[in-house]
């Protein structure tokens, strides 16, 4: 039986679009590309389904970082969804940084269904970044 490593293990909530990024995560799995267990994926049909309220809620409930991942612009299964994603989260991300949230805490990435390796490396990077930042206390419920 292995022993749980000491130290801070961040919780990362990832919203992945069904057609690209979720498929990319599956490909990382079928290719046995290891990455840390810190990430939890919520499957959405399209990155344009991700409401900023979901992200703030995740921080409130204790997520140390939130990732939104979608198809590359121009490759959206629904043609234009990720173009709206790009505008919405460009605005939200700048606002969160302006309010003092570390840029690493909220990330948006384009990961295609063929980019299993990219999915794994994004997970590795975000986990490492957030580990070095430490637990998130900002935007978090007091309870």
């Amino acid at each position: 039986m292995s022993v749980k490593p000491e130290g801070f293990e961040p919780l990362i909530v990832a919203f992945c679009c069904n057609w690209c990024s979720y498929a990319g995560a599956d490909l990382a799995g079928t290719s046995r590309m290891a990455y840390p267990t810190n990430v939890r994926i919520i499957r959405v049909p399209c990155s344009s389904r991700v409401n900023p309220s979901f992200i703030i809620r995740a921080f409130q409930r204790g997520a140390d970082a939130v990732l939104v991942a979608g198809c590359h612009p121009g490759d959206c299964h629904y043609h234009s969804g990720n173009f709206f994603t790009r505008r919405r989260f460009t605005v939200l991300k700048q606002m969160l940084e302006y309010m003092g949230i570390e840029p690493e805490r909220f990330q948006v990435r384009w990961i295609s269904g063929s980019e299993g390796a990219k999915f794994a490396s994004v997970m590795n990077n975000i986990t490492a970044e957030v580990k070095s930042l430490g637990p998130n206390r900002k935007l978090r419920d007091a309870r």
Binding site: F84, R87, K93
Partner: peptide
């Protein structure tokens, strides 16, 4: 309104 439209060549405020 800018969040109800887009251009394909929009820049992004995150790592693309």
């Amino acid at each position: 309104p800018p969040l109800g439209t887009y251009r394909g060549e929009d820049p992004a405020g995150f790592d693309e």
